[in-house]
């Protein structure tokens, strides 16, 4: 870890000029964040705490929300406001479509969305030092999202997301645990960082 710390301090200073940051970042965009989040040795000897269904659902709901965010950011961010209809190949496999409307108020720093996400075996994976933030899942289903996305200060995210039929399979947490939720109903709200969901008839709350 020591070596990486030295390297990061170097990059950070070099990046301050703004000019070189593009060079550095273009080549090593994700290295800095990864260096703070990936420690292969972390938690090896601690032994995993017990994780029952609720525990796994928390990571499952997180995975759904962050896969939606991935689809959104891959397709819509930075695009002109208005009617949306876009498709994207998910980085780990599968496809996703997103359509609906999105409008922004740049002065307030908000984007209002009324979007439908349709995932076709859209695969996504996260690894994190926190076991409950790690997963490797495949999402299938149609989810409707409506509300406000906070983009600037002084605003807060407020979203409602619903689906009649969502399938989420794969592995959650570290060490990986099998997870399978098929053809489940989903009702999920996000208020700031707090995510509350009813998924497969089970209520789950998680802080993003």
């Amino acid at each position: 870890m020591h070596a990486r710390t030295m390297r990061l301090s170097g990059w950070r200073t070099a990046c301050r000029g703004g000019a070189l940051s593009a060079v550095v970042l273009g080549l090593y965009l994700v290295v800095p964040t990864s260096c703070t989040s990936t420690d292969p040795a972390a938690g090896v000897d601690a032994g995993p705490p017990p994780c029952e269904q609720e525990c796994k659902d928390e990571t499952g709901v997180r995975a759904i929300r962050e896969t939606m965010k991935l689809i959104y950011n891959l397709t819509l961010q930075g695009k002109p406001v208005g009617e949306q209809n876009a498709a994207v190949a998910c980085p780990k496999g599968g496809k996703a479509y997103i359509f609906g409307t999105a409008t922004s108020n740049a002065d307030q720093g908000t984007t209002e969305v009324k979007l439908t996400y349709e995932a076709e075996a859209c695969a996504y994976e996260q690894r994190d030092d926190d076991a409950d933030e790690s997963y490797n899942v495949v999402l299938t289903g149609k989810i409707v999202q409506e509300g406000t996305l906070a983009v600037q200060p002084s605003t807060s995210t407020a979203l409602v997301m619903k689906s009649e039929n969502v399938t989420l399979t794969g592995m959650v947490r570290l060490p990986a645990l099998d997870y399978r939720a098929e053809a489940c109903k989903l009702e999920m709200t996000q208020n700031g960082n707090k995510l509350t969901a009813t998924f497969c008839g089970r209520t789950v709350g998680v802080d993003l």
């Binding site: 989040s37 965010k69 999105a102 720093g109 996260q126 993003l208």
Partner: peptide, 18 residues
Amino acid sequence: FPQGTIGTDRSGGGGQGS
């Protein structure tokens, strides 16, 4: 966040939010 464009979904923590 230019006027007339869709903002980024920055909500949440974890990798995507960082």
